[in-house]
Design a protein around this nucleic acid. Sequence first.
DNA 1: AAATTCATCTTGTATAGACAAGTACTTGTC
DNA 2: GACAAGTACTTGTCTATACAAGATGAATTT
Lengths: 245, 245
Amino acid sequence: MNLLFLGMTNPKPHYSIISEFVKKQIQEGIYPTGSLIPSENDLCMQFDTSRMTVRQALNELVKEGFIERKHGKGSFVKSERQSLGLLSFKGFSEVVGSADHEVRTLVVEPPAILPWPQGVFESISRAERGEYFTLKRLRCANDVPVMLEYTYLPIEGFESLLSSELLDGSLFKTLSVKYNVDMRNLEQCLRAIQAETIQSNLLKCPLGSPILAIERKYITNQAGLFVYSKLYCYTDHYSISNVLN
Amino acid sequence: MNLLFLGMTNPKPHYSIISEFVKKQIQEGIYPTGSLIPSENDLCMQFDTSRMTVRQALNELVKEGFIERKHGKGSFVKSERQSLGLLSFKGFSEVVGSADHEVRTLVVEPPAILPWPQGVFESISRAERGEYFTLKRLRCANDVPVMLEYTYLPIEGFESLLSSELLDGSLFKTLSVKYNVDMRNLEQCLRAIQAETIQSNLLKCPLGSPILAIERKYITNQAGLFVYSKLYCYTDHYSISNVLN
DNA sequence: AAATTCATCTTGTATAGACAAGTACTTGTC
DNA sequence: GACAAGTACTTGTCTATACAAGATGAATTT
């Protein structure tokens, strides 16, 4: 039997250890975007295991969107890890293939710990309470405000988030790298509503104009831990696009 | 070497043959929802192949959402095959766990072959032309109109669709079972707009009220074949919910 | 110089076994 | 009857190997 896994306090299967090992290296930038990761045989030798086990590990990473495999060439780090339910903006005047607009994120209020916002998530969840790490941000395309985003994460276990900056300004990346919390899937509710004062002010749209309201509940890989988002989008200048698999 | 696959005109790998065989049986109702499909060893014997090959076949079906596996028990047909980007309705007055509302689909106009609707899919595609199998349907929850749905499928190769009914009234199910066309993923664009006359009439909402407009482009397993949908949703009484993975 | 062949790398498919672990039922004991 | 042990089934993990097939570059031939 092989000795590499013996010393670990880990009851996890080998393929899982290998896939997490490689995943961590990708997240740390040791294998940058587009680069080649070690071949199956390399990993077999490195972990003293069989090829089927390594293949199972790599197939996990394919499922999670970290790598893609090319027959005869190797396994490559995916160019852009598609985050779950990622929304992007699409301008109406754009020609297909034109240069991307610049997306900028403004922090409306500094991150804070606040009680659960009663009444905001009427469609998705009614049973939450306690204190939440709260982000209020405004996303702009070419300096035009498009999306107002409120994000809520239960503070329990994440108290240290307030004391340091988010990695690349992304809460989800920080959760994944620092806390091993990954988003598994999400439930969302869509509505078209009329902009109220607060949305109309921040999105710079007329009061009462139709805006898109999205409530999201992210289910994580940690049982009982959910992240909530409420999004308001003004879609007259940029529509909201995404891809489902 | 085994003889079961030899006579076939099929250059496909064994696991793919097995998974399609089982998939077909599920679609035909031979293994109904929730039932147990044959064990890995059964399938090994039936196809005279090794267990790893059968496992690969079954894992494909897991990925596609047809079955789920339970350690120590067996593989079961999934209760409800989650179709890609499926939208459901959520009433505001409902208590969690209450009985579902009844969803009914009305055909606004009988299926017809029409030219590509210029200007409808401004956000997603501008380059289509030719004739399309066109469906215009209205989805109601508890007899309240919620979603107006236009669906477009290039008629080439699907001429026979007009001459027979859709399976369970579903275009996608018909495409999957009769034509082996499956939806791989989809791109969609969301906007909040004001209801115009036609939408306000059909959705029974005031002219100018905010409605949700969704443009969808479904990418299929057949290269170059796309299905398009345009959806208008009146979300004052029922919001639109879905799940992303 | 151009084309072909060859060697060698990669991932993809497949075999034939082994043991672990979860589940369900039977059997035996108290 | 209640409980424990055994057993027979399931899927999960893993080994060691083999050949197929795509990609790539070097060596050979034309």
